[in-house]
């Protein structure tokens, strides 16, 4: 199974790093990496190493990249007329689906790792007093939160892609879902009272607690999402859409 997943991953990575628009896209992502991985840490100084601030950025970046990478995964194969050939191979449903989702997670994970390392190098160069390195919980935990979030979005993106006829349609559907998911955050912005309460609650907890809670919540979210995607992956349905 692992060999099959890595085979699908291998091809997805070729596409992501060599697609028709991959060079401008890669340059854009590298610019993000430079801004959030070097410039902001430089300005934030030691606070970047101690606070859960990078966690938010890493999670957002991983989610953004994973959704971009996986939103068209099946729809794109359908557009390129390669889907039926792929489905006619010996690969299991799990290998195809997981290979495609993980490609987005790894794609996001690579950029986040690079920006994490960038941030560390920049702050070592700048010199931040006593604390020179990330707390283990923030470094590893934050990275894990970013990967788990990317998995959730990658799975959602694959789900929308399963039934979409074109990658554009898949991206539009995912956009609507993400808007729905992030709507509570937008609403909180307009409710200062609730915002204060939430902030006060968050400040009471330390970084470790926040990260642990986030990891647990994401595991609870990822598992049913994965089961749903696996359940929706039906070769005969995919062929009919094609």
């Amino acid at each position: 199974m692992i060999t099959d997943i890595s085979t699908v991953l291998w091809r997805e990575m070729i596409f992501l790093f060599r697609g028709s628009r991959s060079i401008p896209v890669l340059l854009r992502y590298l610019a993000f990496t430079l801004i959030f991985g070097a410039i902001i840490p430089w300005q934030a100084g030691s606070a970047w190493l101690r606070s859960p601030l990078p966690l938010l950025y890493w999670t957002w970046f991983a989610v953004y990249l994973a959704s971009a990478a996986t939103s068209g995964s099946f729809a794109r194969e359908r557009e390129l007329h390669t889907l039926e050939t792929l489905l006619a191979t010996r690969l299991s449903d799990t290998a195809i689906l997981l290979g495609k989702i993980l490609s987005g997670v790894i794609y996001g994970g690579i950029f986040v790792l690079v920006s994490l390392i960038f941030g560390q190098i920049v702050l070592l160069f700048k010199g931040t007093g006593i604390q020179q390195y990330y707390h283990l919980s923030i470094g590893l935990g934050g990275y894990l939160v970013a990967l788990l979030s990317a998995f959730a979005i990658g799975t959602l993106a694959s789900l929308t892609s399963l039934k979409a006829k074109t990658s554009r349609q898949a991206q539009a559907s995912l956009g609507m879902i993400l808007l729905f998911i992030f709507l509570p955050l937008v609403i909180v912005e307009f409710l200062p009272g609730l915002q204060q309460q939430l902030l006060a609650f968050a400040l009471q907890m330390n970084s470790n607690t926040i990260i642990l809670a986030a990891v647990l919540a994401l595991i609870v979210l990822d598992l049913p999402l994965w089961l749903l995607a696996k359940n929706r992956f039906r070769r005969n349905q995919l062929i009919r859409v094609a």
Binding site: T3, D4, T7, W10, R11, I14, F15, R18, G19, S20, L80, H81, T82, E84, T85, L86, A88, T89, R90, L91
Partner: peptide, 25 residues
């Protein structure tokens, strides 16, 4: 199987296309 469409990945070389399917099998 060679289905209705040839199912080849156009942004990959011939060698990579075959390499992919050889890995699958």
């Amino acid at each position: 199987a060679l289905m209705e469409h040839n199912g080849l990945y156009e942004r990959m070389t011939a060698l990579e296309n075959l390499e992919y399917f050889a890995r699958i099998y």
